[in-house]
Design a protein around this nucleic acid. Structure first.
Lengths: 115, 115
DNA sequence: TCTATATACATAAGAAAGTTAGGTATAATT
DNA sequence: AATTATACCTAACTTTCTTATGTATATAGA
């Protein structure tokens, strides 16, 4: 019923970073973790998540391990060596991008000074 | 020869905000302003910019005024009332999104404390 | 003079990364 | 019995960008 808006290109970075913080995660767990961390403001849709995970596995950034839990299948993902390198790289890119966004969007004079 | 990477959805916000800071701007001027503010790190491509400007004009966010300068045509864009409202809205969304990104990507314990 | 660069607009084909909607299946709750 | 939660998946479509191309004038350099 509602829109998440604005992830656009940061989903891979989010996945990589979460998997650096926690060694093994499965898809559904990632969606719940993001929902929890953002108080429900960002909801990763399954239509975005699963194709992204498959793509990253195909690129060699992630490895998988299937596990049976309570008669249900879970597919756990972990970072490869190359995935760890990609994580660092993407985090740097994202920080640089956000810094640049601030340079563009923040008025020259700090608006807080005008209060 | 090089890639800008990572704008994805923030271009409209950038255009709206620049036009709030400076009443009238033309397309080429916007590309130069962004390049200048980010020390060349973000380059708005024309293939992204012009369609975005046309779309925003069609949506009633921008109005245009064509002007002749040195035998060359310039198309100046300005915010409409609705464009100003959209600017505020998009800025809020973007700030909220960046805050959420920080919540997801920043480790629970401030890394600066580990230095 | 010719060429390249800068200024200034524009479009079109294709790729990338989402949304929305659907499907399968088990477990737990109402 | 029906709904919600858990857990995976895909396919059609849309949005937004990249890359490439086109037009035209002005200026600077070889």
């Amino acid at each position: 019923m509602s829109n998440n808006n604005l992830i656009k290109g940061s989903l891979q970075t989010i996945i990589l970073k979460l998997l650096e913080e926690k060694d093994r995660m499965y898809g559904y767990e990632i969606t719940q973790k993001v929902k929890e961390l953002t108080a429900g403001e960002i909801k990763i849709t399954e239509g975005a998540l699963y194709p992204a995970l498959h793509k990253m596995e195909a690129e060699g950034l992630l490895t998988t391990e299937i596990q049976q839990v309570d008669n249900r299948v879970r597919k756990y993902y972990s970072l490869t060596k190359s995935g760890k390198a990609e994580m660092s790289s993407k985090m740097n890119e994202l920080h640089a991008f956000i810094d640049n966004l601030h340079r563009i969007l923040n008025p020259a004079i700090d608006p807080k000074l005008n209060l």
